[in-house]
Design a protein around this nucleic acid. Sequence first.
DNA 1: TAGCCGAATTAGACACAGTCCAAGTCTTGC
DNA 2: GCAAGACTTGGACTGTGTCTAATTCGGCTA
Lengths: 144, 144
Amino acid sequence: MTLKPHPNYTRGELVEVLRNHGINPTHQRIEIAYVLFSRCEHLSADQLLALVNDRNSETSKATVYNTLNLFLEKKLIREVIVDPSKVFYDPNTDVHHHFYDIDTGELTDIDAADIEVSGLPQLPEGVVTEGVDIIVRIRSEQAV
Amino acid sequence: MTLKPHPNYTRGELVEVLRNHGINPTHQRIEIAYVLFSRCEHLSADQLLALVNDRNSETSKATVYNTLNLFLEKKLIREVIVDPSKVFYDPNTDVHHHFYDIDTGELTDIDAADIEVSGLPQLPEGVVTEGVDIIVRIRSEQAV
DNA sequence: TAGCCGAATTAGACACAGTCCAAGTCTTGC
DNA sequence: GCAAGACTTGGACTGTGTCTAATTCGGCTA
């Protein structure tokens, strides 16, 4: 079972998914998973921290970072590196790419289904691809 | 005239290129341009700071950051955002892409000449592309 | 050559994302 | 209930990058 972001996960569903990914489902981890998967957005660690504490119990900064890194390691989420000042976390782990609006900082998914990249050179010997990220940087026309 | 990284720029050549890009060629800016363009590498701000001060006069951190941002703005260099903790600066402003080795942090150019991306969705209304970055994340096979 | 003025540079304080650590608190198995 | 391990926590810490106020530089005029 793969987790897809959508508005209303039950606690039970989240617990099951965490378990399936080899993650011990603690209160804080469930809270964080809930916030991540209940909204179809790309969140930064500090946004997440604010949202989690807004909704419920006190969760510390350290735990948020620990948990995000655990989720990353277990491939429950992806990180998106487009902004030099902070990392965004993406609950959608399907292969896909991003529009990044330079002016607003907004990040939008691009479905990878129709995209084809041709002409990539061969990889060096003994090296393996971890992933291909395509970032289309955009800006509002008048804002030049 | 476009600047291409290669080992031995003369001071005069650098001064000319800075002027052509609307940049007042001061000592520090020439030093920084020299270090950037004399090596075919992607450098971070702190690496650059070390190299500049190694070679010659004292240049402050603030000046290095100011100058890099000025060079960026004047399109003399590009920034490459692949590592969450720091930005790399790329003296090659031709359209091209990157291999990023997750294990070593090494960044390698991919010539864009042969690459074609098809199937990108249409841009939203009133929005304009600033650039398309493709990052192929790689790692050494045994290191998994 | 002296003197002026705007531009560039500087040191150091600061902001902020993210990590580390040692102490405390839950869980779980027995 | 208890012990052991796993998880969480606050707060100190690190490193990148920015800001600011003061100084210095460089080019211009006379």
